[in-house]
Write a protein that binds this DNA or RNA. Structure first.
Lengths: 345, 345
DNA sequence: CGAAGCTGTGTTAACGATCCCATCATGGGG
DNA sequence: CCCCATGATGGGATCGTTAACACAGCTTCG
């Protein structure tokens, strides 16, 4: 019964096509590959039959026979974040045409969840894996090393990379924004970010803030941490309250992301705090909301999609090299970031 | 060389484990399944060896041998949209524990891209497929019917469902918001949405708007369409300009999503248009930005994550039924939506 | 003109797990 | 004491495709 239904599709196999075309299964297989040696006439005849009868090759069997899964695993802290979604899109753009399927995992900013996902995804024998960030559990590092596939860490510049890297220095970005605020005359600069170190990129930005404040000889650092990542817009607003209570003299706030910066901005409007006259606000990530809100948010722009695209290109060339037995030496691509001056500073 | 590296992991097979444990490969297989008939001692001994030596079963081979892929395909119009990202998260929460891996595809609001993705994903022999919306190309419908797997269409209530449905009436939602605006005394209500019919949910909402305007006997409908989906925040602002030029008397605007509504709101602030006194604004989707902006956006809330979770539950029960040869009758789950009154109306 | 190389195709043997059935103990009931 | 049900394990066959090699028929070139 169930068999019969599936029979239509399930029974269709290369062998059947081969019989219809009067060739061997192998020839059908060759007809479906672009680079195989087969006469144009035979290929045309087979492809015609294939399309007319609606045969779809079984990718599972192909993977199994060729020992190539056609998968690339990618882990992001959150899919519900336009920056990472852009990176995923960049990867898809490059992997799709190459016939590679992206296996996505959402770590929810948790290293242990990352470890679980790595172990689960490795069962699928991906041909490469793209990670976000440079911090992983020891078990995860071990599994990855043992997997023997190209690895790309993104969005960060790890001290001890596992393999390839496509990222930028979040620490430098944080410092750069402090310098920008300083240039614009701000002297009492605060920082709002997450309460944990789970978002390592956020922690790096905070470290950059602290370094710059020290370097510039500003009297003290004013840091309000709030909530687990991802830090929400609303939490930005709540953090502003704490910030103003503790350091009423603060005249500029650097936020871990545009989302929290937006929350701060809206809370300022509710309280009648003049932005940027009384308080300057800076974000990170150049989210759409930062370009559109009023006043427009000064922020740091990164080419998120470019990170994904570059990561994918590295994976593709590593896989290409692997065909001829080579192993590409680890490569680190440093992506630029840019302070985007708008209206909140 | 390359072989040698992979040798560590690649050479490990059930046969090896079986030899080490002094049993047959079949017994190792049983030890790794939870419901197989095997003695507790044997299982414990095998599992001990497995974990000590770090053997990871090859999911590809398992898929192939058991004719079960462990995949569920899911197509969304855009990953970079918090509503759909939430739906994906809802699915992941339900599929993960069930050992199913989500294969995600991003249709970019294009039916032909959806068709391509369906054809590509079907090669992976997913056990079920979750789609967004109820409109698909004829070729796509045919492929899906032929695949003989459970299908769930989400985020809409298709007239002719392919199989199961978890959605709500976008048309009714659009109409409901018009009625709400009417109750609040607005009589000159406009609509801002995308210029194409690619976003079928958006088109439905517009249809609901048009119907409600007619029903309420409002003099005319005022529709500004702008850009391809996804309609951005900035496009909302630009559309406001067109709206005010064409119909200066408009006193309320219903937007296809919170993102465009937010763009409208910000543009109002730049122009000094008082919201809601002079102009009421309503959005759709209850995005975080709607909850956090100032003034807070009146919108329509849907349980996006719940849609994903319910869709996954239906898939799981359909797969469960399939084991015993049954085919579940098509089920339609209507999710509620709710007008969330805030400060822009 | 024969050796060598190329092209197009077929044959065979995997790939690594699971399925189905057979087999062998073991123990309880007649 | 024997028979049969039950539980635990093993032995092949098998899933659909591709890799590797074989080979026939041509062309090319010394």
């Amino acid at each position: 019964m169930k068999r019969a239904e599936e029979g239509q599709a399930g029974a269709l196999t290369m062998q059947k096509i081969a019989e219809l075309a009067g060739v061997s299964a192998m020839t059908v297989s060759r007809a479906l590959k672009s680079d195989a040696s087969i006469s144009p006439e035979t290929r045309a005849r087979i492809l015609d039959i294939v399309s007319r009868i609606g045969y779809v090759p079984d990718a599972t069997a192909r993977m199994f026979a060729s020992r190539r899964s056609g998968f690339v695993a990618a882990l992001v802290p959150s899919l519900n974040n336009s920056n990472f979604a852009d990176t995923v899109r960049g990867m898809e753009e490059a992997f799709g045409p190459a016939g590679l399927q992206l296996l996505l995992g959402d770590t929810e900013y948790s290293l242990s969840r990352e470890e679980d996902l790595i172990s689960a995804l490795l069962q699928r024998r991906p041909e490469a894996i793209v990670l976000t960030g440079g911090v992983h559990t020891p078990a995860a590092r071990q599994m990855l090393a043992k997997a023997g596939i190209p690895i790309v860490e993104t969005w960060d510049l790890p001290k001890a990379p596992l393999d390839h890297v496509v990222g930028f220095s979040n620490e430098a970005a944080g410092a750069a924004m402090v310098h920008y605020l300083y240039e614009r005359g701000r002297r009492n600069i605060g920082f709002i970010g997450g309460a944990t170190n789970l978002d390592t990129r956020g922690s790096e930005r905070r470290a950059g803030y602290a370094r710059a404040v020290r370097e510039l000889g500003l009297s003290r650092s004013r840091v309000v941490t709030f909530g687990k990542p991802p830090v929400t817009m609303s939490q930005g607003g709540e953090a502003l309250d704490l910030m103003l209570k503790q350091w009423p003299e603060v005249d500029a706030i650097l936020c871990v992301s545009d989302l929290s910066a937006f929350g701060v901005l809206m809370e300022c409007q509710r309280r009648g705090v003049a932005v940027p006259q009384r308080l300057a606000i800076a974000g990170f990530g150049d989210f759409e909301v930062a370009r559109c809100c009023h006043p427009r948010l000064t922020t740091i722009a990164v080419d998120c999609q470019g990170i994904g695209r570059r990561a994918a290109e590295i994976v593709l060339s590593a896989l290409e090299a692997k065909k001829s037995g080579e192993v590409l030496p680890p490569e680190t691509v440093v992506m630029p970031f840019e302070v985007v001056a708008r209206e909140t500073v």
